[in-house]
Simulated assay, not measured.
Amino acid sequence: MTSTPDDAATDETAAGPDPDTAALLRDLATSIALLPQVPTSEGEERPEGAIALPVIEQDGQRYIPVFTTEAALRSAGADVDSALRIPLAQLAANWPSDDMWLAVNPASEDGLGLPPDVVRALPVFAGSPDGAGESPPG
């Protein structure tokens, strides 16, 4: 993962992103995320409909890694056949924590890290029911 948004990018997104940033966020928000499976411990059962999110840590920051293509997932060493496929906007609408970032394609040189406030805004960019008819800010 080579780039993370700085405070200016986060402030820009909150105030209304520039057209290039809005297009990137719209593309991400409407994509399908591939999540590597997290193995369960023996005897452990997850509640119905719950998923275990993988977590990686880099420089003291925790990220949930997602991949936008099977090739990106494969290059990270994960099993494509067992990956969970979920709309990224749906994952963002249920984001688990204020201190957890999203790592998009973290094994690639074009990887991107998004802070939680930007992740939670993704459903609006997707035009999902959570953004009920709203268009993206800007």
Results as ranks from 00 to 15, higher is better:
A78E: 08
R62T: 06
P47I: 14
D81M: 13
A9G: 12
V38H: 08
A15H: 09
A15M: 08
L88T: 01
L102A: 01
A83G: 12
P87D: 10
I64F: 04
T2D: 15
A15P: 07
D79R: 05
L34M: 14
P39G: 12
T13P: 02
I86T: 10
T69N: 07
G77V: 07
G131E: 02
D7I: 15
G138V: 03
E45D: 13
G43L: 11
D99A: 08
D18P: 02
A83M: 00
I56F: 04
S128A: 12
L28K: 02
A132Q: 09
V119Y: 00
D99T: 11
W95D: 08
I51D: 03
T4I: 14
A8W: 10
A93M: 01
M100Y: 07
P96I: 07
G133Q: 00
D20P: 04
L122F: 06
D99M: 05
A8L: 11
I56Q: 05
R120D: 04
P87V: 07
I32F: 12
D20S: 12
M100L: 15
D130I: 11
T21G: 01
S31Y: 01
A89S: 13
G111W: 06
A15V: 07
W95N: 09
E134F: 10
G60A: 02
E45L: 13
G60Q: 06
T10M: 12
P39Y: 01
W101K: 06
T30A: 09
G138W: 05
G127F: 03
G77S: 11
